[in-house]
Nucleic acid binder design. Structure first.
Lengths: 323, 323
DNA sequence: TTGTATGCGTTATCAG
DNA sequence: CTGATAACGCATACAA
């Protein structure tokens, strides 16, 4: 920066201003500084800038795994929101482990990130306190709570599960099965699913859990396992990939869908509209979740104190042919 | 840090050492510093550390889009490799635009990242020079070249496309179609596919391109478009999701697979093993690509000068029932 | 509109 | 094994 200043015949600060607040410089000055920057191929050191300004320009996001399209969609949305304001995105994966989340949070706080996006509302003990002490904006996603650490954008997994059960019962299916992972959000959906079924006079639902992250093949296996001990009329899968696996397994077994067994997915991924039969699913706005999370952070960083703290994006059952 | 030093009755440097090189401290000193750190809830400022040490502890990765499982798998692998060495991962998306890639690279160089992982081997002009001047390790992924910017880990997309064509012809299919995006790597696969077909005496292949990022539904549409003007016996899709869409479309049209039309995918995603019929695909080690990229960077950062520069992970045709 | 002085919180170097 | 001192490269308050 000193070299640039010398080359342009100005002082250090002027170079700094040419980069950060160009409109506060005389056009001629600005031009000569920019020319010098180009000529010397000067690349401003953001680390030094961060240290001096105590703003890192970095937002961190923590997801269970990026190799699951629902979370990668959210990260995509978040990245979109941030790129416009020149924030950079630091990414961490927990692999569904609370202690990993805590480790990542510590590491990111050390980096003095300007904001943090978390997945879920359950965290290791101590995390909440550390985040509150850090005094940075935090958004929890993919679920809702009345008492977020700071802000939250998501939907009620419990209500979504309940809605799925009620939808299926409304359609006339009386023997319900649930296929899902055992992470917190799947568990909430299951609880809601059971409650919805109970409310409709169905006291018990079949449950088959699969490891998280789950995949197409787990869906097929789960249906296989269910059919060994029972004869479900409708299967609700906590993720469209599982549901696709169930559809393929139905094809193998020559089960008509929805005639012999109805199939319902979750998340309304692009695949849902492309299957045969097209998949009835619960739409949850994965990408928008990231965008809104980003928007909440940016608003707070801009100083908008009156921004919302809890955004319920809701969900909706998208009816297609499979159920 | 000063507070901690005072509380522990040592100097600043000793606190720094307790954090970075604990084995060079007397056990008693270390213990008292650690106690003070805990007591005061001291969170070391990595930004200041980076500035002083001129090592940021950050690796950046740039992918076309994270919302496509092949790239998110690679990012996953990379993140895995880095987390063990306490490197953090900065993520950027180009959305298949060279100028976005250039912008991101500049931003990341400004952040003084310790290493960079790129997707593909084509970049905007000037990028190569800037990266060489930055003197940081760079890994290009998802393709190979004899002249990488620095290092590369991938496979030959051209050879993979060629192998797909030869495989299909070997199986007796004489009318070939290609469904793929129009990004560089898909283009390379198409070129290879055409070459392979030509070598087997098939001068022309049908081609249907879809927008990137592509999805299941595009696969169905593409098959639809192809069938309007021709009658392909075998379809090679440049991505398993497209292939799954083709399978579903076949189901809709009551085309037997592979009897009426054979379907071949690419990447061997988890879905490939779960479809009905299971999908013949080209396996390309997406996750390992990220892991190896991370390993190459780490080796270089450790100072291993004699590390490899080009890693060909190869590919293999995984034969299943669909072709 | 531009410049001067100061500090951001560490690590590296050297000395003891 | 520990400490004193000088960077690291920039942004901010204040002055001109």
């Amino acid at each position: 920066m000193e070299d640039v200043a010398r080359a342009a015949g100005v002082s250090l600060v002027t170079v700094s201003r040419a980069i950060n607040t160009p409109d506060r410089l005389a056009p001629a000055t600005l031009a000569s500084v920019r020319a010098a920057i180009q000529r010397l191929r000067y690349v401003p050191n953001l680390t030094a800038g961060s240290l001096a300004s105590s703003r890192s320009g970095i937002i961190a996001a923590i997801v269970p795994t990026i190799a699951n399209s629902i979370f990668s969609d959210t990260v995509d949305g978040l990245a979109q929101a941030l790129v416009s304001q020149r924030y950079q995105l630091l990414l961490g994966q927990t692999h569904y482990r609370e202690d990993e989340e805590a480790r990542l949070i510590d590491a990111f706080l050390g980096r003095r990130v300007d904001g943090l996006v978390l997945t879920g509302i359950r965290h290791a003990r101590g995390v909440r306190a550390r985040l509150e002490r850090a005094e940075i904006p935090v958004v929890e996603t993919w679920d809702l709570t009345s008492r977020p650490i700071d802000m939250a954008v998501g939907f009620s997994n419990h209500a979504a599960g309940r809605a799925a059960a009620r939808y299926l019962v409304d359609k006339g299916y009386d023997s319900l099965a649930f296929i899902g992972g055992h992470d917190d959000r799947s568990a909430a959906r299951l609880e809601g699913f059971r409650e919805g079924a109970r409310e409709c006079g169905i006291p018990r639902v079949l449950v088959e859990t699969v490891p998280s992250p789950s995949s197409v093949i787990d869906g097929g296996r789960a249906l296989d396992a269910l059919c060994r001990s029972a004869r479900p009329r409708a299967v609700f899968c906590t993720n469209d990939m599982l549901a696709a696996g169930v559809l393929f397994e139905c094809q193998r077994r020559r089960f008509a869908v929805p005639g012999r067994v109805a199939v319902m997915g979750f998340a309304d991924l692009p695949i849902a509209a492309g299957t045969e039969p097209p998949l009835t699913s619960v739409q949850v706005h994965s990408t928008e979740m990231g965008e809104r999370a980003g928007a909440l952070l940016l608003a707070r960083l801009r100083g908008d104190a009156d921004a919302e703290r809890i955004v319920d994006l809701g969900f909706s059952v998208v009816e297609r042919a499979s159920a």
